[in-house]
């Protein structure tokens, strides 16, 4: 009995000492990127997987170079969205690079594909533009830059899967109206300018209807040659 009491007392003492140690570190936030990017999570999800808001994109697994370009563009006002411009305005570039690396390294599963309310004709038009483009109107196939599996290419070209139709059409619209711009030559601005409203709706609907491929990782740099120059993907 006495021995058990001693043992218990020692255990309690140990526990108290352990508590003290935890309290020491518990006085500071975790020294991790996850804790530092908590400001991003209400809109983009804990691992950058996206949230129920259809206008906020998935960040996880996108090429780090692409994410860094977007963070810089928001910081400098080249890409306009006041809540993002405000958050990033006074953060150093190397820190933005670390944020980009962090979300590029996250690999939560792609969300299940939501049922599309687009008609068969619209989806067919979207499929045709995504896979073949429209040479007569100088519209390249999406896959010619974003990869045959539409998973993007390191360092600067994002994948197009796991995004919702509203987000895709909002971004294509932003390029057409100049609220989203990228380094010259601004290839996406050139392509988006050739699209009609119907094209945008169709492309967004088709892309959002695609199931996740086996590998969602972007292709390594230089896997294929781009059809034209793009400021976001230097040679």
């Amino acid at each position: 009995m006495f021995a058990r009491t001693i043992a218990l007392a020692v255990a309690i003492a140990n526990l108290a000492a352990f508590d003290g140690a935890v309290a020491q570190t518990a006085n500071q936030p975790p020294d991790t990127m996850a804790a530092r990017v908590e400001a991003c999570t209400p809109c983009h999800g804990n691992q950058g997987e996206g949230t129920s808001d259809v206008y906020f994109p998935r960040l996880a697994g996108k090429p780090a170079g692409y994410l860094y370009n977007q963070l810089l563009a928001f910081k400098n006002g080249r890409r306009k969205y006041p809540p993002m411009n405000y958050l990033l305005e006074f953060l150093p570039d190397p820190y933005l690079q670390q944020m980009a690396d962090y979300f590029a390294d996250q690999h939560p599963p792609l969300p299940p594909v939501a049922a599309s309310d687009a008609s068969k004709e619209v989806l067919q038009h979207g499929q045709s533009l995504v896979s073949r483009g429209d040479p007569q109107r100088q519209i390249p196939a999406c896959g010619s830059c974003h990869g045959p599996a539409l998973t993007g290419m390191e360092p600067g070209i994002p994948g197009l899967l796991g995004l919702r139709p509203n987000y895709i059409s909002a971004q294509l619209g932003a390029w057409r109206y100049g609220t989203r711009t990228a380094k010259a030559p601004d290839c996406m601005q050139q392509v988006a300018a050739r699209l009609t409203e119907e094209d945008v709706t169709a492309v967004a609907a088709w892309l959002a209807s695609r199931p996740a491929p086996v590998t969602v990782a972007p292709a390594p740099k230089g896997t294929y040659v781009l059809p034209f120059a793009c400021g976001s993907e230097p040679d």
Partner: peptide
């Protein structure tokens, strides 16, 4: 509503940020 980051400085180059709650 807006959350925010303190500025990145030489003394604190990787500040922690507050999430915006306007949407939540």
């Amino acid at each position: 509503l807006n959350g925010g980051y303190p500025p990145g400085t030489n003394g604190n180059p990787m500040p922690y940020g507050m999430p915006p709650f306007a949407g939540l």
